[in-house]
Structures are given as C-alpha cells and as structure tokens.
C-alpha cells in the first residue's frame, strides 16, 4: 500500500504543497483537478522525479521517500508509471519499446505478447511506434508500464485524448491488472468517465 503525508515538493525552486493520501492494497485513487493544479507534479513526486522539501511517501516493503532521498530501485520495483503523453523511443518498434522498459527496470516479464494481444495491438508489435495512432500509442504506453509487477501504478491522465471505446479498454486494463496483482493505483485525471472505477477521490485545488 501507498501512504503519503502532506508533502511539499520543490518544483524548480518553488514549493507546492499536496494533501496526505493513503491507498490500500487493491484500491484505486482518482486524483482530480484542473489543468495546472499540480496533478503531474504530485505523481512525479511519488515517483521520486521531483524532490521533496517536506513530508514522506511510503510504500510498504519498499521504504520511503523523504527530503532528497529516494530509495534505490524505487522506480524499478516499487512504482510503475504511465506518463501523461505516450512517450517512446521513436527509433524502436512496438516490441522493442517494451523490451527497453524491461531493460530499464531490470525485469523480464515474459507476458508482453499477452498484454499486446489483450490490447489488440499484437499485429503491430514489429511496427515503428510513430506509425501507431494516438489511441494505440496510449494503450501501448499503459501496456509497457503494466509489464511490471510493482505494487503501485501511477497513471498520469491515461485517458486524455482517447475516444469512448479506447477509454473503456484502458479502464478495463487497469482494473484487470489491479485484480491480478493487487496493486494500488493512483490515477490523475479530470476525465469524469473514470469516476466509476475509483475507490477514492482527491481533488487538488
């Protein structure tokens, strides 16, 4: 499970304060707020990408982040992140981008083909990523993150720019992953369609 005290993050010299949260194992917390309210910064603080000025973030069995200290292998084992925009190495194919993620995390998931099939993009596995539609890229971005069995999934606006059908695929994917692994999920979004799958909701001002 993930627990965070009220934290103060250092974003390029200015501090931003975030409320405390706690996500029990197998639950999904939806972080809502307008654009610019700091949703991505909060997720990146939990990922250890933005340094903390105050407070701590703890994941059971993986230690805690406090001021300028991020436990070793935090992003390898403790969390996995779906970035706001589907970022890929444009020089690589679909399957190679998944292998790149596995190499970065130091894991060998062995079920990349299964997830690609589930997402309906197995036929595209040898295609260059820039040949995929935005919806396919968003699904691939999620698939890549969910190769990991990390106890916490951070999803930054995972349904942004997705149509109704792709949004449902994404929601199903997150829920299925959650039921399989028992992970805690933190989703930042201003998409009301996600309200139905949330166990908790926190609104940033």
């Amino acid at each position: 499970m993930l627990s965070s005290s009220a934290i103060e993050s250092n974003l390029n010299g200015s501090s931003i304060t975030f409320p405390s949260i706690s996500i029990p194992k197998g639950e999904l917390l939806l972080l809502k707020g307008y654009s610019g309210s700091g949703k991505s910064t909060f997720l990146h603080s939990i990922a250890g990408l933005v340094p903390l000025l105050k407070g701590h973030i703890r994941i059971k069995g993986h230690g805690e982040i406090s001021e300028n200290i991020v436990p070793k292998n935090w992003r390898n084992n403790a969390i996995t992140i779906i970035p706001q925009r589907p970022l890929f190495w444009q020089s690589l194919t679909v399957i190679e981008n998944i292998k790149l993620c596995e190499w970065s995390k130091g894991i060998e998931s062995g079920h990349s083909e299964y997830i690609l099939e589930k997402l309906g993009i197995i036929d595209l596995s040898k295609r260059a990523v820039n040949k995929l539609s935005l919806g396919q890229q968003q699904r691939l971005s999620a698939a890549r993150a969910l190769m990991s069995k990390a106890p916490v999934v951070l999803a930054d606006e995972p349904t942004a720019a997705l149509d109704e059908q792709n949004t449902h695929i994404m929601m199903d994917l997150l829920k299925e992953h959650q039921s399989k692994t028992g992970c805690s999920i933190l989703v930042s979004s201003h998409d009301n369609r996600l309200d139905s799958i949330a166990d908790q909701m926190v609104k940033l001002q």
Binding site: A47, L49, W103, S104
Partner: peptide, 16 residues
Amino acid sequence: LSDYALLRAFGASWLK
C-alpha cells in the same frame, strides 16, 4: 531528452 527522461522514469540507473 525525453528519451533519457523516460529511461529514468522507468528506473534505469545512470550507469545504464
């Protein structure tokens, strides 16, 4: 830059 940032976000060490 985003390519390397992505590797770091996935947990790649500076050595990698």
